[in-house]
């Protein structure tokens, strides 16, 4: 019954997405460009004198063998955020087109309706993360480009933790932006807000730069950012965890707390929006 309802919502969104996948493409292109332009051009090691040695670089990059590998994982997380930002577009359009009214006028449980949106949008949000992961690794095979270099000991358990981290990260930001989409009065309000949030989310994380090089006030914000938590889980599993304060399990727990809190908050906001009178 509940699965019927969740499935119905997700399926409709999927059909629509198949017919115009534009948002997906444009959202995904940004991180990809970062990856091949910024990631390739910015060679941190080249700035340092030879005497410093690889060990120093590796320790500043928390175990990553080179800057590109460090940065690529940051982009894995960021690509999800870039797509998550569009999560609210469907509910926003559905409200203006009237189909939302039709939807909440059915006997379906209103939490299932939210769950249907969340399911579809979360899956959509996860896809680019895996694509970026695969593409960065694939760059190893293109002569003249640096690719993602990972530790030899990466196994199935590491991949499982990485998977869970990406799921939790996607759930967090998808919930957040879905809620915005449900309550935004118009497109401008929504896109204004999301444009405002995208860069701060990226820059208050350790996606692009090591946390240790930041001022202390920023460091504490960075530690609270779900992007940092997800990135830490992935990096620890890819490069080894000696240099991290916590084990991946702890970061996963923090991340799970975030996503749970954001899902509950979003559910609350969305359910309220179903009774809004305009």
């Amino acid at each position: 019954m509940i699965f019927n309802e969740i499935g119905a919502v997700s399926k409709r969104l999927f059909i629509k997405w198949k017919r115009s996948p534009m948002f997906m493409v444009s959202g995904f292109l940004g991180p990809l460009l970062y990856l091949v332009l910024f990631g390739q051009a910015f060679n941190l090691s080249a700035l340092l004198p030879n005497s410093v040695g690889n060990e120093y670089i590796t320790s500043s990059l928390l175990g990553a063998p080179n800057y590109f590998s460090y940065f690529a994982i940051g982009m894995v997380a960021f690509s999800s955020v870039s797509i998550a930002i569009f999560s609210g577009v469907n509910p926003l359009f559905d409200r203006t087109s009237g189909i939302m009214k039709r939807t909440i006028g059915t006997p379906a449980d209103r939490s299932s309706i939210f769950a249907g949106y969340l399911l579809f949008q979360t899956i959509l949000t996860m896809i680019p993360a895996f694509l970026v992961l695969v593409i960065s690794y694939g760059l190893n095979y293109i002569p003249g480009l640096s690719g993602l270099t990972i530790s030899d000991s990466v196994g199935i358990l590491n991949l499982a933790e990485i998977f869970v981290a990406i799921v939790l990260l996607s759930l967090s930001f998808t919930s957040l932006f879905l809620a915005f989409g449900f309550i935004s009065k118009d497109n401008n309000a929504y896109f204004g807000l999301t444009a405002l949030l995208q860069l701060p989310i990226l820059l208050t994380s350790n996606a692009m730069y090591p946390q240790s090089t930041m001022p202390t006030w920023l460091q504490s914000i960075v530690s609270l950012n779900p992007v940092t938590m997800a990135v830490n889980v992935v990096r620890e599993n890819m490069f080894g965890g000696m240099l991290y304060t916590y084990s991946p399990a702890i970061y996963l727990a923090e991340l799970a707390t975030w996503s749970l809190a954001l899902i509950i908050l979003a559910l609350f906001i969305v359910r309220r929006s179903f009774y809004s009178e305009n």
Binding site: A8, S97, G98, R102
Partner: peptide, 30 residues
């Protein structure tokens, strides 16, 4: 569960076919 509503404004999804619209509502109605 016992009522049907025809709203004042159109509430169908324009990007779906008529059948897909009905299937959507059927799914939501259990």
């Amino acid at each position: 569960k016992n009522i049907g509503i025809v709203f004042q404004e159109s509430t169908s999804d324009n990007q779906l076919t008529g059948r897909e619209n009905l299937q959507y509502i059927a799914g939501l109605s259990g």
